[in-house]
């Protein structure tokens, strides 16, 4: 039996890239949604959360529509940058980012909403501008939620299957990530390869959940936040 490590490496690449994208989007987005009121906020909120409940095939279909040869973004990328998203690893990254975004976003938003508004008001009376307040008060105090969101987003990216298959395809050595490799190894009767990958994914996912729970309990226990605003 010859075991291939390539799907693991591809999965890690995809997950890291997706998490970076998701972090860059979800932190400012969560800040905006947690601290500001504007028209149509509920609609925006629903759109961000949608990938959490939509079947992956629907997301895959939508991504193909947007990034496909004749899709609005697909055309643009082809003409201006001569790059393609469909059937490339970049497609897998986009798919992973879309499904991981709501997880990170929710986690960060809840953490930011829990920051005592009096602290932000106090910073305002001390002459701080809104951006400084966000960076020096809101972000550090929402740190637990950011880390939890990062880990969840990473785990979700690693496990993305349906949408990835539709937009990135199943090209061994190029776009075949772990979940895809498991599915197709099993289909072709290569249970050896499949079961090793299954064990790796399961152990990893268990460690993520276990670690988060332990850490959540610990930081609840010795949280510095509760002390002076009880």
């Amino acid at each position: 039996m010859d075991f291939s490590f390539i799907p693991i490496i591809l999965s890690l690449k995809v997950a890291f890239a997706a998490v970076i994208i998701v972090t860059c989007i979800s932190i400012p987005l969560a800040g905006l949604m947690a601290k500001r009121e504007f028209l149509g906020k509920d609609v925006v909120e629903s759109i961000i959360t949608l990938p959490l409940v939509l079947p992956p095939s629907v997301i895959g279909f939508m991504l193909l529509f947007v990034f496909g040869k004749n899709g609005p973004l697909g055309k643009l990328l082809e003409q201006w940058f001569h790059t393609r998203i469909v059937f490339t690893l970049a497609g897998a990254v986009v798919a992973a980012a879309v499904v991981a975004l709501p997880l990170m976003y929710q986690s960060v938003k809840v953490a930011m909403e829990n920051v005592d508004p009096n602290l932000e008001k106090a910073a305002r009376t001390l002459g701080a501008k809104e951006l400084r307040i966000f960076i020096t008060i809101t972000l550090p105090l929402a740190w637990n939620g950011i880390v939890a969101g990062l880990v969840l987003a990473f785990a979700r990216s690693l496990g993305e299957f349906g949408a990835t298959l539709m937009i990135a395809g199943n090209i061994p050595g190029k776009t075949q990530t772990m979940p895809l490799a498991i599915y197709f190894a099993n289909e072709s009767g290569d249970t050896g390869q499949a079961s090793i990958l299954v064990i790796i994914m399961t152990v990893f996912s268990f460690m993520v959940i276990y670690g988060l729970n332990r850490w959540g309990k610990k930081s609840q226990h010795d949280s510095r936040g509760g002390g002076d605003n009880a």
Binding site: N118, L119, K121, A123, T125, L141, G227
Partner: peptide, 19 residues
């Protein structure tokens, strides 16, 4: 805006930055 009013404010629960 608050930041330009040059007013000091001491909050009821002190609102010290815990971090």
């Amino acid at each position: 805006p608050i930041r330009n009013r040059r007013i000091g404010y001491v909050f009821q629960d002190y609102a010290l930055f815990p971090h």
